[in-house]
Write a protein that binds this DNA or RNA. Structure first.
Lengths: 209, 209, 209, 209
DNA sequence: TATGAATGAGTTTTCATTCAT
DNA sequence: AATGAATGAAAACTCATTCAT
């Protein structure tokens, strides 16, 4: 039941302040990674950051604001990776899609637990303008890519591919898979199948861990 | 950080007790559906069930035990639906897969909020033997179905199809989609693509709400 | 900035519960008397009442609810005393007014600090229906009494007499006066003067402590 | 529970410093007027004054010191107004009293919320020498004025009239009254009644807003 | 067996005040 | 002198769970 958009309380001016904010974010990420959202208490974050609870509240008006900030950071990175994947290389849909899927996998790869926790928290957060914008842009990239192919509804295809990728990756990560190339191949197979681009040449490189 | 498996404290023998347990489960489901996990407090569950908090703890040793029980119920139903879908009808892989996907969608369809909340809670719950068994069985059905087809690793394919389906359905439900036939068609398309069974005849019946 | 009316959370059913509530109210009154509103913290109240903080919140949803309850109690007593003063004795305006003023003084007399603290708090409290009703009734009694006299605006006279009485009594109590008869005489003199009922026979029985 | 008298930390010598102090006082008055004592936080005062929190503490050792200073200013003005009212015009007790009452009303009239908040705070403040002196002088003026009349205890009469006036004015202001002439007439009526100077000629010009 | 009163550790958040720069 | 980052005690309130009746 998100209510009002949440953003940091004040922007750090001095170097010391910037270090404080960084320490808080880092601590929060660590706790989220190892204990999940339930373990994320403001006191614990402050303690782990080596900062007083008062300092935490100088920069983050609520606990949710911390989550929101981490989520924003994650999305920014995701957007950046997707953009690179979309532009770089040939304009062949197959290979572009493959690269974008790899980028999406990478998104979950560096800190899988953190990503999971943040995404789970997302539905409870009142997202601010930047978060919404990032979401829109991510969506737009997929849509733009797919528009080169003749599809009745590219934006729905974008939505479905994102969901499909997300679902497969999340589950695989959760199950402990770490062979990203193999995973990328399987996801790509499903994606191309969805797009009616399936062929027999990318043949099953399977094997579950 | 699940610790020890959790199961109901004692099995209700008398009719009255069975009614009490049912009332508690129903109340918990209702609260979960309408308020999410955060709204699920033991006192509230007891109140809504028209039962004293003491009685609740007679049958459920902890709050998690309630969630675990609801999750078990959900999985039992899912298993049952999948079994029917797997057995019924022709042994054609295409149509069997389609039926099974429809069954999976139905699983999220009746009480989407409840299913979401329970799945989100799952990672925090110490699953008991029955839950594990249910998971294994669900997996087994998919694997068995896919074994009729020549696949290098049917159990991984089962895993991937379940993940793919789950991801697409969850997101669609979250986005407010309610046209299940359309959704089923899209998921099936991706699944058959993954299985290299794609053809051009099931052509895009798309349209996002 | 009062927002929503506040009333007790649940009514105690068992004797034990009633004792708990009584202990809380008593403790709150004691703290209010000796330390003022600023000293009134929920933890302190609970501690002094020999009750856990949780128990306090079983019966009072917020700290304000405690204040509101004490205020209601005070007003109930005031109303009761005023009613007796208004009915009892001759219908002579002079003597009725005198009796009512004495009743008002008595109101501040038993626990002057408590009364002061509660009245100071009143403007911050979102009053509930009963409190409002009590206020109206107290006002009505004065108005009714004064209506027997030919006054252009009895309700304003009621308002002014209450204010005048309240002001004089509060200040006197604050200054440490304890000779209530003397105080009553002075207040009555001002009140009758206001009503144009002044005479020379109630001659100055003054002397400040 | 006032402890040690509180006065400004250091007297501003330079013009800039004087401006800083003025800005702080103004900001505090504004906040007090619009949000009450609860809204008065040192950080907010500093922010509104356009001054750093550190600077605020250069001139006021504690938050209470700010309140104390505002209170002193209010009393100084009140004293000044009373002095003028006492001296100016005829030495007739009736008219002098009337003028003094009008001065007292004016005291609450310019910034009713501020005056209320400050007076409410007074009982918590450890008053310094100047505040005490001001109080004494205000009292003395009333006493001096009343001494011209044959009264057994002029200082008590002074005390009572001040209390009576204060009570009526405070309540009227609180109730939203803004017709100061009407209010002055009513207060005067009570005061003269108290002094046994009542006559029938100042007949009820009543009418509550 | 059922009840519901009681518990208290734990959570978020505020704000007066200090002190390094 | 001024700044503003940092502090941390303290306050309100929640909720899973226990246990006397």
């Amino acid at each position: 039941m998100p209510s009002a958009p949440i953003s940091p309380r004040k922007t750090p001016r001095q170097a010391r302040a910037r270090a404080t904010v960084a320490a808080i974010e880092e601590a929060a990420a660590h706790i989220l990674t190892h204990g999940g959202v339930d373990a994320l208490t403001t006191n614990l974050v402050a303690a782990r950051a080596g900062v007083s609870i008062g300092s935490l509240y100088q920069y983050f008006p609520t606990k949710e604001a911390i989550l929101a900030e981490l989520l924003r950071k994650l999305r920014r990175e995701h957007l950046h990776d997707l953009e690179r994947a979309a532009q770089q290389g040939g304009d062949d849909l197959r290979s572009t899609t493959t690269r974008m899927i790899r980028a999406s996998i990478a998104h979950h790869t560096e800190a899988p637990e953190l990503a999971r926790a943040l995404e789970a928290a997302e539905s409870h957060l009142p997202l601010d303008a930047e978060s919404e914008a990032l979401k829109t842009q991510i969506s737009a990239i997929w849509t733009a890519t797919l528009s080169t192919h003749a599809l009745p509804d590219p934006s729905q295809a974008a939505f479905d591919l994102a969901a499909l990728t997300h679902g497969m990756v999340t589950r695989a990560v959760q199950a402990g898979e770490r062979d990203w190339d193999n995973l990328a191949a399987r996801v790509t197979r499903a994606a191309l199948g969805y797009l009616h681009l399936c062929t027999q040449d990318d043949h099953q490189p399977t094997q579950q861990p």
